[in-house]
Design a binder for these strands. Structure first.
Lengths: 213, 213
DNA sequence: GTATATTTGTATGGATCGTTATAAAAATCA
DNA sequence: TGATTTTTATAACGATCCATACAAATATAC
């Protein structure tokens, strides 16, 4: 629960915070993103944020709570990116490519080699033993499926997609494509190659257009 | 490089090993599988294998080398399972389902909740900062793609698959389906639901059969 | 038996882990 | 100014990390 959202009230009482909570969370996220939850020590987070351990604990609680907040924020951002891509009035194949381009922008953000998806790259490992992380991941995965499925249903309504197509099945494949791209990005694949993968996947998923072109 | 493969020569000299290297590697793999590489201490591995830390180091080198050997062994087993499923003379859709059933058997093996895929569940996290693990993962991913692609090409030759289909694109989708199943299994999805996902994906991937049914 | 070779368990080293006690620093309120 | 409030940095806590020194244990070779 990030504070610092106070609307500059009548001036706070004690010593003012030296660091912004939002940017600290962003820096912490970047650190977890690269070395995972278990592989990231709080000292590393402290170094990345410039905050001392006691300040981190005062603001975020503990390492686990900090990671959960980073995970929740990541879901917000990445799900919003997918939704925005799918929400426009583009043709189905273009909308899907916009979603994959948005994902690629996230997966290849930051300095150095690609980090892929924060969830696939760090949360999935913890999910086996950590109920809180598992819950967050499961909920997010369902949301992705639902967003894709809604777009496929809309495509059917608009006549872009064969009436006999199965929107739920296509949604799983669309989500799977996003996830394989996330894995391959982290494993070192080139962005252009991954975009080509997305393009081919979209072609298969959209299938032959209904008669009216 | 696991020893203990010696063909019972003229009787070894010193005190005989108390533990079998193969079963120790299997137990170590199971431990990494659940808590990941960074999340698994050597003490935990020692407890799981029943071996003392010095014995583990004598046999496997160090924690990193032990994990790499577990990873290599996992690739061997899982790739062999996929190949065997695709190698039979079943129809394309049945062959694909055999591959997914084999994967599900691996993902749901062991006691307790499903661990998913060892690679997706543990190696992908380390891949960002560990060159050796990254190399192993990249090679394995290429192998999966190649195995699926070969099967799709065969299907075209046998007339099971539309001549205009793109075997490479379908292979990516088939691999992506396997990976999304791995992720969802670890995140708590039920086996029956994942099998249904596989079934629907196979339907989309195989597409409409060519004229001759 | 004695010497040699190899593995074993115990015990521990030095570093790092997550977390917190403590007190100085920097602001407002009186 | 002095009291109060809040954040800061330093330092350290016990626990655990990966790895190894050491000597007892157990086999063969002579």
């Amino acid at each position: 629960m990030a504070r610092k959202k106070s609307e500059t009230g009548p001036a706070r009482r004690g010593r003012p915070p030296a660091y912004d909570t939002e940017t600290a969370l962003k820096r912490a996220t970047e650190t977890f993103w690269r070395t995972g939850y278990s592989g990231t020590s709080l000292d590393k987070v402290a170094a990345a944020t410039g905050m001392s351990p006691p300040s981190l604990y005062a603001v975020f609680g503990n390492k686990h709570a900090l990671y959960l907040e980073a995970l929740a924020r990541y879901w917000e951002i990445s799900l919003a990116a997918t939704r925005e891509a799918l929400a426009g009035d583009h043709p189905l194949d273009e909308a899907l490519m916009l979603a994959y381009d948005a994902a690629l922008s996230i997966y290849f953000s930051g300095k150095g080699s690609a980090r892929g998806c924060f969830v696939v790259g760090t949360a999935v490992t913890e999910v086996a033993e950590d109920a809180a992380i598992r819950s967050s991941v499961a909920t997010g995965l369902r949301a992705i499926d639902a967003d894709f499925e809604a777009r496929f249903r809309l495509a059917q309504d608009k006549g872009e997609l064969d009436r006999e197509a199965d929107p739920a099945a296509l949604a799983i494949l669309a989500a799977a494509t996003m996830q394989t791209i996330a894995i391959r990005a982290r494993a070192g694949a080139r962005r252009a190659d991954l975009r080509e993968i997305a393009r081919k996947a979209v072609t298969v998923i959209c299938g032959r257009q209904p008669e009216a072109r």
